[in-house]
Amino acid sequence: MTATRTIVFSPDQLAEVRRLQGLYPDKRGALLPVLHMAQDAFDYVSLEVQEYVAGLFDMAPSHVHEVVTFYTLYFQQPKGRHVVAVCHNLSCYLAGSREILAHVKQRLGIGVGETTDDGRVTLQSVECLCACEAAPMMQVDDRYELNLTPEKVDRILGELR
């Protein structure tokens, strides 16, 4: 992660952008995957990255910003090596997600939207992830962790390096 990195896609990445844009009747349909590409390439989607992507789509930067702020999987700040996203929607809430989130906060010593000082974990509180049958739940990176209890949370967090 370097603060001074130039925000430009490589020729290969630009070819991929064009391929994705070509898949849709309106090229803006490819905005989400291209933002993911940008996040992978530049670690997070800073305002500078959002402006760059807006340029690739001939869109107003504010409209890209609207999309980025709508979805929890786009990070506007540098994120930790791992992302823990606790669901706060109805089913999980009724099943105790408030306590789970409080526990995660306390164990990590950070609030929602923050990253631990060692850069290990970023914490999020998110809308429904479609696993109500196993509430309360959270997503850790690309994995679902289901039927959470404080003890289970301790074990999961302990395994993150």
């Binding site: 305002l47 402006e51 107003a60 504010s62 409209h63 910003h65 609207e66 702020t69």
Partner: peptide
């Protein structure tokens, strides 16, 4: 702002109960 004047200064930022009218970079 976006469709009529084609400026795109303002849009709806965020989601759910935190949604608000705002500009690029908030």
């Amino acid at each position: 702002c976006g469709d009529v004047q084609q400026i795109g200064a303002i849009s709806l930022l965020g989601r759910s109960h935190a949604t608000k009218v705002g500009v690029f970079g908030d």
